[in-house]
Design a protein around this nucleic acid. Sequence first.
DNA 1: CCGAGTGCCTATAAACTTTAGGCAAAAGTA
DNA 2: TACTTTTGCCTAAAGTTTATAGGCACTCGG
Lengths: 189, 189
Amino acid sequence: MVRAGLSAERLTQAGAELADEVGFDQVTVSALARRFDVKAASLYSHLRNSQDLKVRIALFALAELADRAAAALAGRAGRDALTAFANVYRDYAREHPGRYAAAQLRLDPETAAASAGVRHAEMVRAILRGYDVPEPDQTHAVRLLGSFFHGYVSLEANGGFSHSAPEARESWARLLDILDALLRTWPAS
Amino acid sequence: MVRAGLSAERLTQAGAELADEVGFDQVTVSALARRFDVKAASLYSHLRNSQDLKVRIALFALAELADRAAAALAGRAGRDALTAFANVYRDYAREHPGRYAAAQLRLDPETAAASAGVRHAEMVRAILRGYDVPEPDQTHAVRLLGSFFHGYVSLEANGGFSHSAPEARESWARLLDILDALLRTWPAS
DNA sequence: CCGAGTGCCTATAAACTTTAGGCAAAAGTA
DNA sequence: TACTTTTGCCTAAAGTTTATAGGCACTCGG
């Protein structure tokens, strides 16, 4: 009886793939076990429970997305950094809808604080260094960018833009222009 | 044996309350039946299945939110309309986190087209009538506002802003100022 | 007051979650 | 190599949820 070679890491990775295929909320311990030709109970040596699996996938997705964003940011600044970073988000959500949904999972505060979510905020703040947003507004600007990126990508993923005419890609490009201009000429308080 | 007086409407309403209490993804046919002191099977006379329940709650939340937004918009224009509308979203998500999560449920295209989601987009477009955004950019501006509102509220709900210093309320007010200014002086293409 | 319809019931089956305990393969030790 | 320890996946089993089918009794129109 050859062993399947399970581990928390392999289960998380396979869970992320499963999420992309069937949707994050369809990810179950049973379905994941089926994918490894193994009984569901066997997974409980590696996972505490079903919620633990979901949290692991969420952390995995957050880290993967942060890695891609960091790579895109390397060597860029200003508008170039802004669009590169933004496109990483949008592309990730389009390529990996299940993982992107996972990254939105509500984490308890200490888990969130130890997650790659922190890196995301740091990277947005790094982008702002290419602009002259005055210090007291920096955090506000970080939140503006983060909210816009997430909101746009999430609405697009949920079909919010599918009915009206201009392609989502076109709005995206135009709005990144607008935001770039806004950051360059940030209004004083 | 006194009847519980179930109906799709009462179940949807109670499902929305349940969502606010325990989270939208914890809403199950079983839990809802328990709340009415009724067997789960009884609900299937009123609901097709578990997914049907979730869709009904989502449509209920979308409509309720649209009603509140419409009420807030009445008699207002420009910046006044913008902030009133935005605050309806934020307040709704804070008062009714489960319903707000429900409103994000992915609907199939024809259901979405028949939902109150359409009214949301129309109202944002109405707000823009108080500004001089040139026609070709109107849809982009609608998407900017929609993305920002949803993204901010959703990140705040998921604890994304809880660690860093400025209160989420403060950023919100400042960013609405910024967006108002942006809309007033929308850059030409 | 009676007949018809429908509202909630019981019974049942299948899928998923989770715990407990067992056996055999893998890894460590002499 | 042989023996022990560890660990990985198993079976068994109980509890929960979803969903269907069929039945009884309450309610309402006549």
